[in-house]
Nucleic acid binder design. Structure first.
Lengths: 152, 152
DNA sequence: TCATCATAATGAGCCATGCTCACTATGCTA
DNA sequence: TAGCATAGTGAGCATGGCTCATTATGATGA
């Protein structure tokens, strides 16, 4: 009895992890076409969320070291997605700021994501979709209760 | 109407991607305690799935270059998880083989995963669990139909 | 048999992404 | 103004991807 349940729990986790891997791979594949790496894209997402800010702030938001942010911003500056602007309030700091190309890239990613969500869910029976969302919310709540915190 | 649906699809995909990130982070954190990196662990999982085999076979199974496998196996040999045994049928090749420590490590990972699946799902109402699994299967089927292939 | 081509692994060397530690330049405060 | 704190970066390391060249071995055909 308990054994039977364990097996179905494991099968469910296997599905979840498989989905995790497949979604990750797909995201990374899509990125390559835009000349972006996963880490640099993550920085762009963060920048969109918190707005032009110091590298220190980006490091805190992404939970990586300030030194790593220097490297990522170097790459994004070299490829024209962001610029380093002087911070009028602190001459030690820079304000990492989108270029037009950077803004366009993030907008494109958002559009791609919307399209992908349509492809994933539009054909799903409403009841099943609702069941999936309820299940995901349950899992996310459980993870939160287990002490895992969202990176956002 | 269509707009409303789009928003709920997006919200669902956001949940899925958030879950993806959180599960990934958690897995990687857990690994560090065992002295394993994510890539080396992935190789151990692969090796468990396909059995002692050449590095070439591992590269094919993991969809990475043979050169990268050389590096990963170097690390796993240095830390005592696997050994390189001569292939009796082909003196060019090696058979990557678990040590006792390697077998124990994989067994431990499996046990951790079973425990984690219990923590995630044991408290979930059976109906919601069933709804989650049905939804996940639907999504996996859709991904397959979209041309995304499982890495296994 | 032996020359040729194919294959398994690795050396050399590149890039990206993470880290720490040390250092510079600047800000802040007593 | 002296001294501590903070933002960013240089130096240097590890991991994990890659390609290309090389070595050793296997396999095949003349």
């Amino acid at each position: 009895m308990a054994h039977y349940d364990d097996d179905s729990y494991n099968a469910a986790l296997d599905r979840l992890l498989l989905l995790t891997v497949m979604l990750n791979d797909d995201m990374h594949r899509g990125l390559a076409t835009d000349g972006l790496t996963p880490s640099r894209t993550s920085l762009l997402w963060t920048l969109r969320r918190i707005g032009p800010c110091s590298q220190k702030a980006i490091a805190a938001a992404m939970q990586i070291s300030p030194r790593t942010v220097t490297g990522l911003v170097d790459g994004l500056v070299a490829t024209g997605f962001v610029t380093r602007e002087p911070d009028p309030a602190d001459r030690r700091a820079v304000l990492v700021t989108f270029t037009a190309k950077g803004t366009a890239a993030v907008d494109s990613l958002i559009a791609q994501q919307r399209e992908f969500s349509r492809q994933l869910f539009a054909a799903m029976p409403p009841e099943r979709f609702a069941g999936l969302v309820a299940g995901l919310d349950d899992v996310l709540g459980t993870l939160h209760a287990l002490g895992l915190r969202s990176p956002f």
